[in-house]
Simulated assay, not measured.
Amino acid sequence: MSRSDQVSEHGSRTAKESGREGSVPRQRASSRSFLASELKQLFRRGRTQALLLALAAIPVMIAVVVRLSTAVPPGRGPAFLDRITQNGLFVGVTALIVAVPLFLPLTIGVVAGDTIAGEAGHGTLRYLLVAPAGRVRLLLVKYVGAVAFCVAAPLAVALAGAGIGAALFPVGPVTLLSGDVVQPGEALNRMLLIAAYQTVSLLGLSAIGLFLSTLTDVPVGAMAATIVLSVASQVLDQLPQLEWLHPWLFSHYWFGFADLLRQPIGWDSFTSNAMLQAGYIAVFGALAYGRFVSKDVLS
């Protein structure tokens, strides 16, 4: 072999090795770019913005109604409703309680149910898979997008509630359920903790929506099925005959954030809720993976 041939072969081998060494950073950069593009597209979408605005309107409506009405009788209406006139920070807490059973699951169902089925319905799923995304990476990015909305949705309710409450009512020290009094800054932190609790509560439902989204090319069907399951889970959780099933329902701990309004904070419900949601993520994430990697993508 001539010297020039040896140099050529060495250069070719070096290029291949450097290509392999650089493939991992390129894949990571590609994944970050893909995720950033997905998040940008999600939150620029008019439907997503409309859902967040609708959630933010819940505390605004509560505050305006309370402001224009006479005194609310104690024990009537949602929890803490009768305390709003005394302290505007209770608007956010009351709005989160109102949003938990229907409005938050509804918006999560819309977003999660659209993850894969929406791309298939618009005919863009095949092109995403042709790009160097891969089915597993696409599935992960879509779920992370749904998780990002799970963060934004309760946060929109809490922040809008704090803002409108401060604008229409006095703000001062807050008496917790344990009888302790905390300053407004600490009370706002507690409200954000409740929003974080609701984010964790919705992660299992998002995983269910992702799985259902892999079963159909019609996003409305996946959305509706996700919302129906959230309602069914809450109904089953109210039946005493199924008490043995209650701890396994993904909605069982949705209202378990009362411990965050005590001094000191109790984390038992938060931990139990997180473990339950992690189980749903594992099960329905695996089901979504099994379905999606073997799915014939025609559109």
Rank of each mutant, 00 (worst) to 15 (best):
L39D: 03
G88W: 01
G109N: 09
R47S: 14
F90Y: 12
A54H: 07
P101E: 01
L96N: 01
G75M: 04
L39C: 01
M61K: 10
A56S: 10
A79V: 11
R83K: 13
S37V: 09
L89E: 03
V93C: 10
L104Q: 02
T107Y: 07
A50Q: 02
R76K: 11
R45H: 12
S37W: 12
P78K: 06
A63L: 04
I84V: 06
T107N: 02
V98H: 12
L42E: 14
V60S: 02
I108A: 10
G109I: 11
T107C: 10
V60M: 08
L96H: 03
R47W: 11
I62C: 04
A63N: 07
T70P: 07
A79S: 12
G77M: 09
L51K: 03
L102H: 09
L68H: 06
F80G: 04
A36W: 15
V93R: 15
P105K: 05
F34P: 08
R45G: 07
A71I: 06
L81Y: 03
L96M: 08
I58M: 03
L81G: 00
N87A: 00
K40S: 15
V98T: 12
G75K: 14
L42H: 01
A95K: 04
I84K: 09
N87R: 00
G109L: 09
V66I: 14
L52C: 05
V91P: 00
L89P: 01
I62T: 00
P101S: 03
R47K: 10
A79Q: 14
S69G: 05
L96D: 08
T85Q: 15
L39M: 06
F34L: 13
L55M: 08
R67C: 07
Q86A: 12
S37Q: 12
R76Q: 15
L35H: 07
L89Q: 09
V100K: 14
I62E: 01
G75T: 12
E38N: 12
G109M: 10
T70K: 15
R45I: 08
F103G: 07
L68T: 09
T94H: 00
T70F: 13
V72K: 06
P101V: 11
R67W: 13
S69M: 10
Q41E: 14
L52G: 03
G88H: 01
A54Y: 05
T85M: 14
G88P: 00
F43L: 03
I84L: 12
V72F: 05
P105W: 05
V91D: 04
L55G: 00
T107W: 08
I84H: 04
E38H: 08
V60C: 05
V64H: 08
P74Y: 11
P59N: 05
V91S: 00
D82F: 04
D82Y: 14
A63M: 08
A57F: 07
G88A: 04
V66M: 10
F80K: 05
Q49H: 06
T94I: 13
P74S: 11
F103I: 13
P78Y: 08
R44E: 13
N87L: 08
G46L: 12
A57N: 02
R67I: 06
V91F: 01
S37L: 14
V91T: 05
V100A: 13
L39T: 00
A99E: 02
L96K: 01
L102T: 03
A79C: 08
F43V: 05
P59V: 04
I62G: 00
V64D: 07
L96P: 03
G88L: 02
L89V: 11
S69F: 02
V72A: 07
M61G: 09
A36M: 10
A57H: 06
A54G: 03
G77N: 11
L35I: 01
